[in-house]
């Protein structure tokens, strides 16, 4: 589904490549942890996959197409096939939880009837039924992240990309969120989670791709992130 071929990304301000010569294949329905310390290149890799950034060298292929050839229209369609979850939730403070989740459908031009049908389903999947009219500030960190996940899955994306999704919540909540990701994955969605949380990675026994200083230094099925580099 996703194929990264010798991808290198050098930022103008960076002294070394954020990711360097990365090769990675992600199959449909996989659950992958992108593990590594801060600054290892996990976020950059997520941005390359979501086409928020373009590689300086190499290729990012999605469903067999080279994303470098995307025009604006393809880029938008590409993003609509992805669901993004952020460490800081990125919910709009002046909109209700319902409106935040609905926004993903509104920008895709979905009709109101479909929005009314899909949003409650997504909120139910993440356990936020009854919180539709709450504002983000009225929810706990864990609930806000669940709302972020609901927004990411409401379009039923092919791939769910999460960048340190448990970084701002306590351990128990983090575990609940990871179980939620696992359930979403069981529904057929490919899930990639960037994290530096060793315990969490070790607990779930999924495929682990370890990055360090922009390079892939490990790729194990049912792996763990316990190396000390």
């Amino acid at each position: 589904m996703i194929e990264i071929v010798s991808a290198t990304k050098v930022y103008k301000t960076g002294s070394r490549p954020a990711v360097e010569e990365v090769d990675l294949r992600v199959g449909r329905g996989e659950f992958i942890f992108l593990a590594g310390p801060m600054g290892a290149g996990k976020t950059t890799l997520i941005k390359l996959i979501s086409c928020e950034e373009r590689p300086t060298k190499g290729q990012i292929k999605f469903l067999g197409s080279d994303t470098a050839a995307y025009k604006e229209r393809h880029l938008l369609l590409h993003r609509r096939k992805m669901g993004l979850v952020f460490q800081d939730f990125r919910l709009l403070k002046n909109k209700t939880i319902y409106e935040n989740v609905a926004l993903a459908l509104v920008v895709s031009g979905r009709p109101p009837r479909e929005i009314k049908r899909r949003v409650p389903v997504a909120l139910d999947r993440v356990g936020l039924s009854g919180k539709e009219n709450s504002f983000p500030s009225e929810l706990s960190g864990g609930e806000q992240q669940r709302a972020g996940i609901a927004r990411a899955i409401v379009r039923e994306p092919l791939v769910l990309l999460a960048d340190e999704p448990t970084g701002n919540v306590d351990r128990e909540t983090a575990l609940g969120l990871m179980e939620l990701f696992e359930r979403i994955n069981e529904g057929g969605t490919t899930v990639l989670i960037a994290t530096h949380d060793r315990d969490m990675v070790g607990r779930f026994k999924k495929r682990v791709v370890t990055l360090e200083q922009g390079r892939v230094v490990g790729d194990e099925l049912q792996g763990s992130y316990d190396r000390v580099h």
Binding site: L76, R79, R80, L84, R90, L103, V107, S108, R151
Partner: peptide, 11 residues
């Protein structure tokens, strides 16, 4: 909001 909309695939 614009940033988020771009992430969500708004043109």
């Amino acid at each position: 909001e614009i940033e988020i909309m771009k992430h969500l695939g708004a043109g």
